[in-house]
Amino acid sequence: MELRQQALQVLCSADPGEKVRAARELGTAAASLPVSQAAPAATLPVPGRPQRPALVHAARVPKRSPFKPEGLAALLHAIAHIEFNAINLAADAAWRFDGMPREFHLDWVRVMAEEAYHFTLLQDHLRTLGYDYGDFDAHDGLWAMCEKTKDDVVARMALVPRTLEARGLDATPQIQEKLRNVGTPAAMRAVEILDVILRDEVGHVAIGNRWYRWLCEREGYDPVAHYGVVAAKFDAPRLYPPFNEEARLRAGFTNEEFASLSSNARDA
């Protein structure tokens, strides 16, 4: 079976364990697989989801202190939910978009497999605390932008990896600092897991930057100016400091882009 069909199967899988297994297996096999020119049709709901967690508005997700065991578990669950969504986001990119080079699909399958690994690390740690994925409510903000940009690959690259996922580069060090202040063995293990995730997410955002610029060159867009166009068109969230400048620069943001980001934040 060719690569895009298998990416679609990962995307449609509703069982987290099966989704993770299939994602990591496809990541291993991807380089040897053919890639079709046209996306196969989806015959199951996109994306596949388990019945739990319940999805609620972001404002209805309770805030809990990580200094309490349940609060720490809730924080880990929230990050695990982001990683579960990230599997779907990468699988969708690998499956959906026609007219892209083979390397585009291979890049997003690799991202998908790494997101599955992140989810596994977090779920395993949750289980050591007596909880599992699905035990807390969650929200659906990441997938909402994926749905908005399903017909515009330039907007998808601009607004999912380079905007929503790049926010993780900014947020992760702050979360780690809170966890260090908690100081328990469970919290410190979470810090270690976030080190792995942050390292890999720099690479994922870099892939988004690479393909966004490639697409802008193909379509004749100025990357900095066009970002503002798609951010307004698709109502992208405004980004606020503090920004992780070092990680963003390693992920391929230019000094001009970072200056524009900082300027927009000051004008908010």
Rank of each mutant, 00 (worst) to 15 (best):
P185A: 04
Y227G: 02
K148T: 03
G168L: 11
A23P: 10
E192D: 15
S36I: 05
E256S: 12
Q6I: 02
P45Q: 07
G220I: 01
V191C: 01
D140C: 02
R52K: 12
A155C: 07
E192P: 03
R4C: 03
A166I: 02
K233Q: 15
P185T: 01
L179C: 07
A54L: 14
L215Y: 05
L44F: 05
T163C: 14
A93N: 09
L142A: 12
T120E: 14
R52E: 07
A265F: 04
F84V: 06
G220A: 03
I79P: 01
P40Q: 00
V56C: 08
C146T: 14
P40L: 00
A90I: 14
M157V: 06
S36R: 11
G168A: 10
A22M: 14
L164E: 07
Q37C: 11
E70H: 11
M188R: 15
L261F: 04
A236L: 10
A225F: 03
A171H: 12
P53C: 06
H139T: 08
N244Y: 04
M1D: 13
R189H: 14
V61W: 01
A58F: 10
G220C: 10
P50E: 05
R60H: 07
L33G: 06
R180F: 00
E246S: 09
A74S: 14
I82W: 11
A268Q: 12
Q174C: 00
R52H: 13
F258W: 08
L159Q: 02
P62F: 07
L11H: 00
V56A: 05
G48P: 11
E256P: 03
A78F: 02
M188P: 02
R199N: 13
P185L: 01
A225V: 09
G252H: 02
R238S: 09
A54N: 06
A268W: 06
L198E: 09
A23H: 13
W211I: 09
L44H: 13
A41G: 04
V202C: 03
T254F: 09
V224H: 06
P173R: 00
G208C: 04
A158R: 00
R49I: 02
T128H: 12
L126N: 02
A94T: 07
L215N: 13
V61S: 00
H105A: 14
C12T: 15
V154L: 13
V154Q: 06
V10G: 06
A73P: 03
E257F: 02
H105F: 04
W95H: 02
K150R: 14
D222V: 05
E25T: 15
A74F: 10
G17Y: 08
N181Q: 15
E217G: 12
P161D: 09
A73S: 15
G141R: 12
E257T: 08
I175V: 13
P62E: 09
L122N: 01
D200C: 01
D151Q: 14
L126A: 06
R189K: 10
A236P: 02
Q9S: 09
E103P: 06
A78W: 13
R167E: 13
T254S: 15
T149Q: 04
I79T: 10
Y133T: 02
G252P: 11
M1C: 05
P34M: 06
A232Q: 15
H57T: 07
D132M: 01
D235K: 11
A94K: 07
C146G: 15
R162I: 13
D267A: 13
W95D: 03
L26T: 09
W214G: 00
A22D: 14
Y133I: 00
